[in-house]
Amino acid sequence: MFPQKPFEPPKEFFDNPEQRCACVLLLDTSGSMAGQPISAVNDGIRAFKEALMTDELAVKRVDLAIVTFGPVEIVRDFQTADDFQPPTLEAKGDTPMGEAIRQAITMVRNRKDTYKENRIAYYRPWIFLITDGAPTDAWKSAATSVHEGEAAKGFNFFAVGVEGANLETLKEISPPNRQPVMLKGLNFRELFIWLSSSLSTVSHSKPGDEVSLPHPTGWATI
């Protein structure tokens, strides 16, 4: 008999044992995003990566995934910012937002288990939803899961509406303590730079720090 192969940690954690801040970008790529909006999103994601790259700790700690809808698709599974390649997204299909949210919650839960198995310390994960429409599928149970996950401090959920979004539905989905925000025009670039600096702050936070999102400035209409 050959001896059993010893446990080998995945290379990503062996090479980089830094603590992680998981973040799922949940992006609406339905037909109504076609044209200028989707190219502004793609631009914004590139700026997002560039901004993270300027912070030597955040680049090793912010763990990014992208899920688009619809249909629901994992475009990028979790990767730290240095390995992350910005995708070029195309707009098509409807808006299965409920399924997308459930997918993101499952991914975040599994990612935490992976961290634990590999003894990687981690921060509370982020789920960041951007949409210009209203769900075309059943979303009530997804909203309940969001509220429960927030209450249990399992993750932070934040929704941004683009012009045309159904803000009332977004309010119902969002946790009571973090109401959705409307994007000003197509200021995706400003939004993503703000998100990068927020994630940098989280990834530098110390025991006792309560990290809340800074006030959205320059990109929101509130």
């Binding site: 603590q19 310390a121 981690y122 921060y123 509370r124 401090k153 989280v202 936070s205 110390k206 025991p207 006792g208 720090d209 990290v211």
Partner: peptide, 11 residues
């Protein structure tokens, strides 16, 4: 002593 998250501990 760390809590679930890296930025939590006991005081």
């Amino acid at each position: 002593q760390h809590g679930e998250y890296a930025n939590t501990t006991n005081f």
